[in-house]
Design a protein around this nucleic acid. Sequence first.
DNA 1: CATTCCATTTGACATTTGTCAAAAAAAGCA
DNA 2: TGCTTTTTTTGACAAATGTCAAATGGAATG
Lengths: 191, 191
Amino acid sequence: MKPIVREYLDTLSGLSPLSPQTRELLLNCISTRTISKGELLLEHGEVCKHIYYVDKGLMRIFYYKDKRDITEWFAGDKQFLFSVRSYFEETPSKLIIEALEDSEVILLSKEKQEVLIKTNLEVANLMIKAFSYSLILSQKRMESIQFESAKERYVSLMEQQPEIIHKAPLQYIASFLGITQETLSRIRSKI
Amino acid sequence: MKPIVREYLDTLSGLSPLSPQTRELLLNCISTRTISKGELLLEHGEVCKHIYYVDKGLMRIFYYKDKRDITEWFAGDKQFLFSVRSYFEETPSKLIIEALEDSEVILLSKEKQEVLIKTNLEVANLMIKAFSYSLILSQKRMESIQFESAKERYVSLMEQQPEIIHKAPLQYIASFLGITQETLSRIRSKI
DNA sequence: CATTCCATTTGACATTTGTCAAAAAAAGCA
DNA sequence: TGCTTTTTTTGACAAATGTCAAATGGAATG
């Protein structure tokens, strides 16, 4: 077993305890992918069939709104990501996932995981934890967008995910914050 | 068993199949509460220990930001709601839940539900579905807030939850949309 | 029915953010 | 290194939304 897969299973165990037997079962749901800067992990129109985990690197999840590219989320080292609506509703994804750096990603197959949760309590409890955690993140992001000014959101981002500020181009950060790049540039110059 | 509890169990079964035995077990996690207009279902600072289901009525979830009252969500007939972060993180809730009408609410105890999911696969799968569904809702709301104008958000609300427009005071709708009541009033007058 | 209390609307003006164009800076490539 | 392309910054102005104050309207109450 690759060391990064072992570490990944450890991470999952950290969410909810997993016995050696269950870890063995999960191995069968897991694959890894090396992806180069600029490549897509999930294309527009594709159904999202995995939950991704960025072992190392930086991914961006975005979509097009009126031909304009809008960043919805960044995921750096040791973070999970997936196209929520496509994954659950099994519909073509409007969201696109691209690598902003050469990255190493671990994929958890939805199909296989869904077979497991029907029979394995540990995996079921793991998924409950995973989705709960996603829900908290989504909630935090919602609160941030709804009632912070552009400047406050930028400051929050600097505090919470400083690596994004350094690694991602300004235009991506701007759309993530829900503002134009000009506005972000001006905010930046005043800090 | 009260008929509304039976219907509630049917609703849950609709999310993920539940055997008669499991329904019996869930009964022990369920309580009901009648709540009058203006009363609070969850107070500020209280830890949210239930997932609520509005059998009949209308609830509002809100918080105070700089002494200003901000509506985060409405839940009408047959909808679920809870204070996400307080529930999962078991922290004092910043969110307050109040009844905008006399309502009938069903409560699902977190404590008892968490015991069940450790041993019962059906309940575990039910919770997975429930949280997945919440995650989709949260995601949709996020998309709406992030990249629709105030006017678009108002139109979406009219389409998706028209009863809110009729039942809730304008000021609550305005903060839910992330705008001031004056702006909403002006948007309204132009439609 | 009159009065009081809120909720809503309107007006005038301020602030924030967006748009478009151009300049400057940085990054990529021959 | 020098050239080209892309990204970021800056300026001028427009549009959207916020703020504050006052006017209006409606509901509740004595």
